[in-house]
Design a protein around this nucleic acid. Structure first.
Lengths: 340, 340
DNA sequence: GACTGGCACTCTGTCTTCAGGAGTGCCAAC
DNA sequence: GTTGGCACTCCTGAAGACAGAGTGCCAGTC
């Protein structure tokens, strides 16, 4: 059966009240707080239906109702109008970003800003290497057989890596390699580089090939395989708001999940469309986060997306507000990147 | 009055039992678990004295005794023989460090290792810039008026910073600056650079001086003032071991403190001697960490110290084991750095 | 003088009971 | 389809009872 308008209205009211009060909401309280225009008994009937459909549930007989994950999902999909940001929030965003000096700075400020505005845990991914282009490669000799490879990307990331050479290399060879590598790779998107690197090796004079091969393998690692993604995290303390109740008694699994970069990347990554994305409870496949929701969004200069950011909180979360904030911050960061 | 040997033995037993069981320990249980050779009544007398001296206290009348901060302090100072690491731990350390590729790698692995071995929150400071020396400075043009300054230190850190020039600069000027900056600064300890940078500006031909001044100011910021210290953190989830009881009911203040780099630096910094340092409860001046202890140590290649690392846990912590682990890891990391 | 056994006392934690309250489901009436 | 009424369920908090653990003190012993 389908849910008529009033039932949806009841669901919305339940979600709103529950998010606000943290307490199971009953029929009487509901009609008192919202202008539903019907009696508690009627609401009870509607609730029975909503429960049957799996949108709400009772913690125990004769307690009020609590939204299920499915209930939140419906709420987010059909019952939410994005809250416009308050002027105060807007100002906060702008103030926060005054005087940024480099990418690290942008990322750190952004993550703190997000945590502060949403009062949740915030995660920001550094611009993904695979979506960036090489701006410049530098080779700095450390000793006769070692050098440091520094890569600067167009998104502002700087990666470095130690290269251990098979034997001593004269300075002019380093210069030559540096020149050739830049010639070949500068301006290329990282995702496109592997074949170019290979070609670079092939085109090298045989006597110098081992050296170049060595550099190439480090390059490939740095460019592609490497723990290529970095993250910043903030607002962990927000998990403790409202006792530990929100996460069924223990923060442990959540804290554990937050320590795994891979997990976090999964959560805020997958940046297909540029829209904001909401994963509620079970929907994110991490077992440890069954009682958590994640609101995430891609960001990047203009229409392209170079990284993800988002927040994580209890399923009992202010979705409209959080979604609006995440979206606004993502857009703002994108603009900021575009300016560089 | 002074405490005789048996009283000290009683204190040690109380600390050990309390750390193990998390429960106030009474006289009877004490004689049963340790070979004290006296009766509970005698132990009670000793306890009365220890309590009067402030080393233990009763949560309430007729409960067992619990060590105070002062009690732990005495325990650490006079009653602890450093536990040698177990072979398993030793192996864990070595296994953990196989195949490190660069500084980031070392730091991240170390922090996880520490968290894992001690089962507490671990913090590792990156080699402090002020204690490092410049190895190489690189200037990479981004546009005609912008360039990226990359600094590589002898401890392996790579810092970058955007430089906004007052006007367009020809490529050869960039080269020239690059050459001069390296000539002047390479090999210098960062702490010694400011006057050199100043001299560099003074020695610049007047027509190029604004540009050089601009670069110099960024250099100074990067070299000195900048958030020069970086940290890695791991093991937050360990805070939840043993319920929330260990931190008087709420993790909030602790989590908040862990988010403040400045606070963490204070905790593991101050690396005067190369010995391991223990701060118990009140001893670390951060209000939020009144119920936490910190075991920290400096590390560095050879005898010099370039950074700090440590762990944070409840005052009720296994001090001998933790101290041994922190010391061993610090030494190991030092050796690792020395190899580069 | 130091140690010990005994004893009365205190406090906590747990369990039970009990009343109050909130909320439901169902039914008959509108 | 909606409503008022009513019986029922279950949670919550307060109050009381009780066992257990631990203490402090005292008088006796080595």
């Amino acid at each position: 059966m389908s849910l008529d308008d009033r039932k949806l209205e009841v669901l919305r009211a339940i979600v709103q009240d529950y998010v606000e009060t943290r307490e199971p909401v009953g029929s009487k309280a509901l009609v008192e707080r919202h202008q539903l225009g019907v009696s508690p008994a009627t609401v009870r009937n509607d609730m029975a239906v909503l429960e049957e459909e799996g949108y709400i549930r009772q913690p125990h007989t004769s307690a009020g109702r609590v939204p299920t994950d499915a209930g939140y999902r419906l709420f987010v999909d059909r019952l939410t109008r994005i809250k416009p940001l308050s002027p105060a929030e807007r100002r906060a965003i702008e103030r926060f970003m005054v005087g940024v000096v480099d990418l690290d700075d942008v990322v750190h400020r952004t993550v703190r800003l997000l945590a502060q505005l949403t009062r949740q845990v915030a995660v920001v991914q550094y611009p993904s290497l695979s979506r960036s282009a090489v701006r410049h490669l530098e080779l700095v000799p450390i000793s006769t057989t070692r050098l440091t490879l520094v890569m600067i990307t167009d998104t502002g990331r700087v990666e470095q890596r130690l290269v251990e050479m098979p034997g001593p290399i004269p300075a002019e060879d380093v210069w030559e390699m540096r020149r050739r590598v830049n010639e070949k790779l500068a301006g290329q998107r990282l995702a496109d580089t592997p074949p170019l690197v290979q070609k670079l090796v092939d085109e090298t004079a045989p006597e110098r090939r081992p050296t170049m091969a060595c550099l190439a393998s480090v390059l490939l690692e740095t460019l592609v395989e490497r723990s290529e993604e970095r993250l910043a995290l903030a607002g962990t303390a927000n998990l403790t708001r409202g006792g530990v109740l929100d996460f069924q008694g223990t923060l442990r699994p959540v804290l554990e999940a937050l320590e795994e970069e891979v997990i976090l990347l999964k959560l805020i990554g997958d940046l297909e469309p540029s829209t904001t994305r909401v994963r509620i409870g079970d929907e994110n496949e991490i077992d440890n986060l069954r009682s958590a929701s994640v609101v995430s969004s891609g960001y990047g200069p203009g229409a392209t997306i170079v990284g993800g950011l988002g927040v994580l909180g209890p399923t009992r979360m202010d979705y409209p507000g959080t979604i609006a904030t995440v979206r606004a911050v993502a857009r703002y960061v994108g603009d900021l990147l575009a300016q560089n």
